[in-house]
Design a protein around this nucleic acid. Structure first.
Lengths: 228, 228
DNA sequence: TCAAAAGTGTTTCGGATACACCCATGC
DNA sequence: GCATGGGTGTATCCGAAACACTTTTGA
């Protein structure tokens, strides 16, 4: 190894995940209590391994907790204040992910103490994890306003009223259902199914799915996704 | 140190900066030839030091090259593919910055071989620096569309035609000057000075400055900054 | 006086908003 | 038959876009 490299101090590199879920009523974040810090809730995290990319590591860590693969995962920010972890200096790369909460419920392993918390009612968090969550919420709002990522939080089949409730929860507001539905449908990203939701309302709402092909075409472009 | 930490492998942490400048005609990126890799252009970079935050380190590195402080600096992305640096595994946190190119010209130290390249005519770059630049351009476009950050690339005093040329360069297009000027002025962020630009055109264009107070108020909100 | 850039005004169009009523169904 | 949530239509408004002429002044 060259001198210029040798003289440098290496640091531990961690990954932390802000895992969002939606239970039909409010937007939630999945928190855990980890071995070292039994008393404090924290984000799910882990260490970067030698053969992994950052994204692979974040993915693996997410899988370890939730058993889920193929979830929406996006790098949020690298956090590296010298004293952020008081024990040893660690640079943490935070990722946020959007999971279908019902998939998660079915796959969770008992290895961790994990719990969903409403984003409006979070406990104190370890280290700078509170900052990470705040930033993730901001980013989710920013992104969901212009990109159709909300679907990642719902089942493959969902109704328009469910989708509206999700956006209500993300933005902590109440959108007008007529304008909301018109706007969402005008993107042509949704395919109406013949099946109706049963059991929730008397009339029942039609299920929709995302048109995967169109979705991939536009996932990179601006859409203006929030009405009102 | 606790066992859980001890078992982990540490990595070198670097910072790389995509430094944007605008010379009045086209959008440029500042590249250097570094000691180790004399034949290849690369981004300006350096190592994270024990007592620094990531942002402080990026700032210091920027200062070392340009002599500039108080420049716009924003974290872009952390890059950590295992083989991105073939010599030793390094995680690099990339920052992008917007500098006033004339300030830079006056402060550059001769210590580095540095050169501005048009973003449409870049040489091959070291490691994954090409990806970093691509992403930075994408991010700049994304951000400048909705936030008034373009001013960071111009002198404190600038004319509307200069500002339009900057946006033309960023988006590689030609905006309509009537709509452009109306839209920019409608934000009420600019203060018209009595002084006119001399020497460039016969008639001369009025100088403007940014209303710092209003600028700070809106720098976090959405503005819809690109017309046409 | 003319060339070159600065500066400004109007019309049109489409999307955003606000708003209210009918529909389907289980009880 | 009625209560509950689902679904749709319209008028208005405002910002976006398209578009062309006048002004200033140095040469």
């Amino acid at each position: 190894m060259l001198d210029q490299y040798k003289q440098q101090q290496p640091y531990l590199v961690a990954l932390d995940s802000i895992i969002f879920g939606f239970d039909g009523e409010s937007l939630k974040v999945l928190l855990v209590k980890r071995g070292l810090e039994e008393k404090t809730w924290s984000l799910m995290g882990g260490w970067l391994q030698p053969e992994e990319s950052l994204e692979q590591a974040a993915s693996r860590i997410l899988f370890d907790l939730t058993g889920l693969t193929n979830v929406y995962l996006e790098q949020l920010h690298a956090f590296g204040n010298p004293d952020r972890d008081p024990i040893v200096r660690t640079v943490s790369v935070a990722y946020f992910s959007l999971v279908k909460i019902t998939d998660y419920e079915s796959k969770i392993s008992g290895a961790f103490q994990a719990q969903w918390f409403s984003i409006y009612d979070l406990p104190p968090l370890l280290f700078d994890h509170g900052d990470m969550v705040d930033l993730a919420i901001k980013r989710l709002r920013y992104k969901a306003a212009q990109h159709p990522i909300g679907f990642e939080l719902l089942n493959d089949k969902f109704t328009i009223p469910q989708l509206k409730k999700l956006y209500d929860a993300i933005y902590n507001t109440e959108f007008d259902k007529r304008n909301f539905s018109r706007k969402i449908l005008s993107t042509n990203l949704l395919i109406k199914l013949t099946e109706k939701q049963k059991g929730f309302s008397k009339r029942g709402a039609f299920y929709y799915t995302v048109d995967a092909e169109k979705y991939h075409l536009v996932s990179d472009s601006f859409l203006n996704f929030i009405p009102n």
